[in-house]
């Protein structure tokens, strides 16, 4: 029915599974290194719980979308691959949203808000374009798991810092009774936190002798 992807004949061997699973945390962390999906990251990470829920939802959609693209990549026409990736993501987001609302209404009450946001996440479509469209099912799934976990890690880290300093609590449990540094749980505080964490990651990287990476951001 359609052309095979242009990249198929000169496909490189997939990196080992260990690399795929780990690089999402530091080497290619979606938030701190690739600077993708920063807008939603700022919007929802004012607490650990929100960060974890968002991360979990992204993990699920990322893995399912990567698997779908890896399985159907032979049938996706190269010229319309981006619209098709968007449709695949939107379908998975909607299906998860509806199933979760029907099967687990208690969980849905907590995460329903975040699931719908995922359609607009650049990280997912970028992994489909960069990885899942070029590799087979197993590596693509692993890449999705790794990137999803890396994103979750970033969300929880940002959420923890903002919640402890901005609200004086962790997972909603108050730690101190004093009036905390409120700015951090407001949107501006999200930018400060992400900026400072990015700087910290770069500093560690430079200390370890790696050249400073440069790159653009995208929501």
């Amino acid at each position: 029915m359609s052309n095979a992807p242009a990249t198929a004949p000169r496909q490189m061997p997939a990196p080992p599974t260990r690399t795929l699973l780990w690089r999402g945390f530091f080497a290619e962390n979606p938030v701190f290194r690739l600077a993708l999906s920063l807008c939603p990251a700022v919007a929802v990470t004012n607490s650990v719980k929100n960060g974890l829920m968002m991360g979990g939802a992204v993990l699920a959609v990322q893995v399912l979308s990567s698997m779908t693209v890896a399985l159907t990549r032979a049938g996706i026409h190269d010229k319309v691959r981006i619209p098709i990736y968007t449709i695949i993501i939107a379908v998975w987001v909607s299906v998860i949203d509806m199933l979760c609302a029907a099967v687990a209404p208690v969980v849905y009450a907590e995460i329903g808000l975040y699931i719908k946001l995922i359609v607009a996440f650049a990280i997912i479509i970028s992994r489909l374009e960069v990885f899942a469209s070029k590799y087979s099912l197993i590596p693509s799934t692993m890449d999705g798991v790794g990137m999803g976990l890396g994103f979750t890690f970033a969300m929880v880290l940002i959420g923890a810092l903002r919640e402890v300093l901005g609200n004086g609590s962790v997972w909603g449990i108050p730690l101190v009774d004093a009036q905390p540094f409120l700015l951090l749980i407001l949107p501006a505080g999200g930018f400060f936190t992400i900026g400072l964490l990015m700087a910290a990651m770069n500093w560690i990287d430079v200390r370890r002798g790696n050249p400073l990476s440069t790159g653009g951001g995208c929501h």
């Binding site: 029915m1 359609s2 052309n3 049938g75 996706i76 026409h77 010229k79 319309v80 619209p83 098709i84 449709i87 695949i88 939107a90 379908v91 909607s94 299906v95 509806m98 199933l99 609302a101 029907a102 099967v103 209404p105």
Partner: peptide
């Protein structure tokens, strides 16, 4: 081919969404 590729994708996507909605809506 491009048209067919997109159209088939949309038909499949629409069917999946419709089926899922029909199954889950009463419970929701």
């Amino acid at each position: 081919r491009i048209t067919l590729s997109l159209a088939v994708t949309c038909v499949i996507a629409g069917s999946v969404l419709g089926l899922c909605f029909t199954l889950t809506e009463p419970t929701i």
